[in-house]
Simulated assay, not measured.
Amino acid sequence: MLIDAHHHLWRIARNDYGWLTPETGFLYRDYEPSDFKPLLDAHGIERAVVIQAAPTLAETDFLLSLSQAHPYLGAVVGWVDFSARDTPEQLDRLSKHSHFRGVRPMIQDIPEDDWMLRPELNDTFVALTQRDLSFDALIQPRHLRALIELVGRHPSLRMVINHCGKPEVRDWQVGDARFNAWQAGIAELARHPNVFCKLSALPTRSAPNWSAATFADYVEVLMTAFGETRLMWASDWPILERNGRYADWLRVARQLVPESAHANVFGATAQAFYRIE
């Protein structure tokens, strides 16, 4: 089974996407299953994981309703307020839906780099672990140190790093201090068997006219660190289209991942992590 482990759907009229404004250009419109499913069909992809794009419980309920109507949506990653007292109850409510698999706080939008280490959030991380729900870590390189500490505190929390930790491909040179720091952080996180990673968003972190060569060193770092059973490919559609096309990113990723690892990276890893039927 081929799986796209990360994409987004939204309806502008829901009005809780603070980051979506007319200034975001082509992204400022509705993106529905009917827009996305033809891309999957064109490439033989059977399931996809839909990820929250707004920090509200209403967003989670919206995505769960879509998954109920569209079977190809094999898993939903929603949002909860990590600091709310009733979050365990909210997780229990959401878990009654057969496609709810975990949550994603929008860490990259929070000014405080150490936000995830706040004591008042600890109970939510414990609640996720107890319920065997996953934590999608939407981080940037500045968060690597804090995420390493978080993993140490919660060694049984099932965690997946979004978008390779968002390395700044367009600005970095392979082997410079920033690349080396990212590589070291990724390697440290990968030491923990509960940590997975999504091979995604490299195109949007890159300059235009990227190719397989642009990403080769990054994919080598990820494959070496996580191996094929903890690395999962994802499109990050429609954000991907800021600097690339679905077919091109899938083609380049297939070139960079050893063919012997394709079954896992392009399907089985995501299927196991998100328990996709």
Rank of each mutant, 00 (worst) to 15 (best):
P119K: 05
L121N: 10
L121V: 13
L121A: 12
N122G: 12
D123P: 01
T124Q: 00
T124C: 15
F125M: 01
V126A: 12
A127F: 10
A127Y: 12
L128M: 09
L128E: 07
T129H: 14
T129W: 14
T129L: 15
Q130E: 15
R131W: 03
R131G: 06
R131K: 05
D132E: 15
L133H: 13
L133V: 04
L133E: 07
S134R: 14
F135P: 03
F135E: 03
D136C: 12
D136P: 13
D136L: 13
D136Q: 04
A137F: 09
A137N: 06
L138V: 10
L138R: 01
I139F: 00
I139R: 07
I139Y: 08
Q140V: 04
Q140D: 02
Q140Y: 07
Q140R: 11
P141V: 02
P141D: 03
P141W: 04
P141S: 03
R142D: 00
H143K: 01
H143M: 01
H143W: 11
L144S: 08
L144G: 11
L144E: 12
L144V: 04
L144A: 10
R145F: 01
R145N: 09
R145S: 15
R145M: 00
A146S: 14
L147G: 06
I148V: 15
I148G: 11
E149L: 05
E149V: 13
L150N: 09
L150Q: 15
L150V: 13
V151C: 14
R153C: 13
H154N: 00
P155T: 13
P155I: 03
P155N: 14
P155S: 11
S156F: 02
S156C: 02
S156L: 00
L157Q: 10
L157N: 07
L157C: 07
R158N: 09
R158Q: 09
M159G: 00
M159I: 15
V160H: 09
V160L: 00
V160A: 01
I161H: 10
I161T: 13
N162S: 14
N162P: 02
N162F: 10
N162Y: 00
H163C: 05
H163D: 01
G165F: 01
G165N: 04
K166N: 13
K166H: 04
P167I: 12
P167N: 10
E168M: 14
V169K: 00
V169E: 02
D171W: 09
D171F: 05
D171T: 12
Q173Y: 05
Q173P: 04
Q173F: 11
Q173H: 08
V174H: 03
V174T: 03
V174E: 02
G175Y: 05
G175N: 12
G175E: 12
D176F: 06
D176I: 10
A177K: 08
A177Q: 13
R178D: 05
R178K: 05
R178G: 02
F179M: 04
A181C: 09
W182A: 02
Q183E: 10
A184Q: 06
A184D: 14
A184H: 11
G185K: 12
G185A: 12
G185M: 07
I186F: 12
I186T: 11
A187L: 04
A187R: 08
A187M: 07
L189W: 12
L189G: 07
A190N: 11
A190F: 13
A190H: 05
R191A: 13
R191K: 15
H192G: 11
N194I: 08
N194T: 15
V195A: 07
F196V: 12
F196M: 01
C197K: 06
C197S: 11
C197L: 09
K198R: 08
